[in-house]
């Protein structure tokens, strides 16, 4: 079954052309000109990835992203002509996973799509050999356990809800536990961004991840910031 995309864009030309271009790449695309219409779409729950414009007539892109986040963890990419820091950070904080500024090459969009669509690799013989499936992140509180085999994070018996991107980020940090990972490295590994990627994406996602894995998000112990270098995961 092909991957289903939702394109929310009020500009007719962009919506039509992006829809066609992504269809050419083998995706199944549904386009909507307004957030209200997209939310009424009965097949919204089956969408695998959202492409969302921020400036829309009526309900704006930020509200739409929050609404989608409330319902699911599927990746969301923002397509925006706004390139200001506060617009981007606001969109990421609303729950977007990545963003592309207009005008863009469709190749760029599909590269981001692929990066976010990348599923956690299934267990291979090699992995079973040198890395355990289960990593205990915090033995005292919970315990907090990352199960890379099942791709879930558990605190005690309970599953901690992570978005796909948050899970990838945590897995990368856990795989290099005790070592500092620069924002650049994380951008490349989690988002497939090249050299000119936006490091704010990493910061916003780390902030969101902390609210889920830390005991006190404002006083992080597990995912710590190493000033000037990046982030490090310290198993407790």
């Amino acid at each position: 079954m092909s991957v289903r995309l939702l394109v929310l864009e009020d500009d007719d030309g962009i919506r039509t052309s992006v829809t066609m271009a992504l269809e050419d790449e083998g995706y199944e695309v549904t386009g909507h000109p307004s957030a209200e219409e997209a939310l009424r779409d009965p097949s919204l729950g089956e969408v695998d990835l959202h492409l969302v414009d921020l400036m829309l007539g009526g309900m704006d892109g930020y509200s739409f992203i929050r609404e989608v986040r409330r319902r699911s963890d599927v990746p969301i990419i923002v397509l925006s002509a706004k390139g200001d820091t506060h617009d981007i950070v606001a969109a990421l904080e609303a729950g977007a996973d990545d963003y592309v500024t207009k005008p863009f090459e469709i190749k760029e969009v599909s590269a981001r799509l692929r990066a976010l669509r990348r599923r956690p690799p299934t267990r291979s013989a090699e992995q079973t050999a040198d890395a355990p499936d289960v990593v205990v992140l915090d033995a005292e509180n919970g315990p907090l356990v990352l199960d890379t085999g099942a791709a879930v994070l558990r605190r005690g018996e309970e599953v901690v809800h992570l978005t796909v991107t948050e899970y990838h980020l945590l897995r990368e940090l856990a795989a290099s536990a005790g070592r500092v990972l620069s924002r650049q490295v994380l951008l490349e590994r989690v988002w497939d961004h090249g050299y000119f990627g936006d490091e704010r994406i990493v910061d916003v996602h780390v902030r969101r991840l902390r609210t889920k894995v830390e005991v006190t998000a404002s006083d992080p112990r597990l995912v710590v910031t190493v000033r000037g270098l990046g982030y490090r995961l310290d198993p407790q």
């Binding site: 500009d11 962009i14 271009a21 002509a81 005008p103 863009f104 090459e105």
Partner: peptide, 13 residues
């Protein structure tokens, strides 16, 4: 930006 985006994408199509 909007028409340019459409143009770039349409040319790809």
């Amino acid at each position: 930006r909007s028409p340019v985006t459409t143009l770039m994408t349409s040319v790809t199509v």
